[in-house]
Nucleic acid binder design. Structure first.
Lengths: 206, 206
DNA sequence: ACTGAATAAGTGGTCAGACCACTATGGAGT
DNA sequence: ACTCCATAGTGGTCTGACCACTTATTCAGT
């Protein structure tokens, strides 16, 4: 019944580090105190401090450089998403589920890209699809990598990359040859329903 | 443990643990080997094993009980999410990305659900939204949880759950009151473009 | 034979200290 | 002014110890 509020040390360390970041107005790239200094300041052992820092590192919140120090990550890398995914995707998800999510992400990204696409982009996409010395899977990857970059949404791209990496081991990634050309056209005409239709055709073609 | 390839020990440990879970077909609630046993098996120190376990714990992948052991979790534990979110959501850009992906997933799930919806489902959804003694966020969760279950796609649901758990700590999840009613109607009429339109209105309303 | 309390064994939680590997720095020698 | 390298500072890892908590075992009292 005793509600012992025994918080683990590494957890308090995490909170303290967050407070430190806030209080010192640290931004990406700034250096954190050394492990030994943190340990002394927070009255914790270096092991406990490291447990907290390693967790943060794995989540992509910080970046450690051997011999240099610990730094706030320069960009939001969504490392935690990858780690989570590697555990979630280990389960018995069917090929069907993976393929569906992959297609949905590609479709939505394309529709998002409508709002950002400029003239040069269409040319670039066409060039990608006409690169001679690359396989269909490589073209597909390059094509949508470009699309996802256009969306300015790193998170959705990250999720897609993970899904794709799992899909790739099962079967091919790519759609029909004419599909990509049609997508570029629809993108150019900012025709969202057309994109919806194009992907839907691929969905039922499987 | 071998330090070849500059791979940090705690990271190898993490991969090994994932392999162990995979190989032994562990499911939620199952017990992992003790820290000492893992250290011995993986030729790593207990400190390194703990660094890996703490990171997994922070992500809600495992649950440790003092004196008992370490157990595989169903990663529904929202315990550390708030702390995690306080780190991850520091940048406005990140919040935007999360909100967009959340909306896209909900939209696509709803459209997928069209193909599975039966008469009883609409009634059930209406009931959820008319439950008196529950907040708007709870209604929203229950509503879409039901939608996602209809899609028979566990993967997309899990992705959504993770996204939502982070979003929730920051601001409200839900849309306008009339929105849900309109969605049910569109679902009933299998009107995919209407669903598209409804969500799009919410997107620009932010 | 049964019950219950004391004990032991196993587990996570934490700490201190040691050593290694790597990086940046600054001073000695040119 | 330049180069070189010893050195200090940093993260990376390991060992061993002790504490706190939970469960299993033992054993005394009935």
């Amino acid at each position: 019944m005793s509600t012992t509020n025994h918080q683990k040390v590494y957890y308090s360390v995490l909170e303290e580090i967050r407070n430190y970041i806030d209080h010192h107005r640290l931004v990406s790239g700034d250096k954190l105190p050394s492990e030994r200094e943190l340990a002394e300041t927070l009255y914790a052992s270096r092991s406990s401090v490291r447990e907290a820092l390693r967790a943060m590192e794995l989540l992509g919140l910080i970046q450690t450089r051997h011999g240099e120090g610990t730094f706030l990550s320069n960009y939001q890398s969504y490392e935690s998403v990858e780690l989570l995914a590697s555990f979630i995707l280990r389960e018995k998800h069917t090929r069907q589920e993976l393929a569906t999510v992959k297609l949905l992400l590609e479709k939505e990204a394309t529709k998002l890209a409508i709002h950002f696409a400029e003239n040069g982009d269409f040319m670039k996409l066409k060039t990608i699809m006409h690169t001679a010395n690359s396989g269909e899977n490589e073209k597909h990857m390059a094509f949508f990598q470009y699309i996802f970059d256009m969306t300015n949404n790193l998170l959705i791209k990250k999720i897609w990359l993970i899904i794709v990496s799992f899909t790739q081991t099962l079967h091919d990634l790519y759609y029909e040859q004419t599909f990509y050309k049609d997508v570029i056209t629809a993108l150019q005409e900012k025709d969202s329903p057309k994109i919806e239709q194009l992907f839907f055709e691929q969905l039922i073609n499987r």
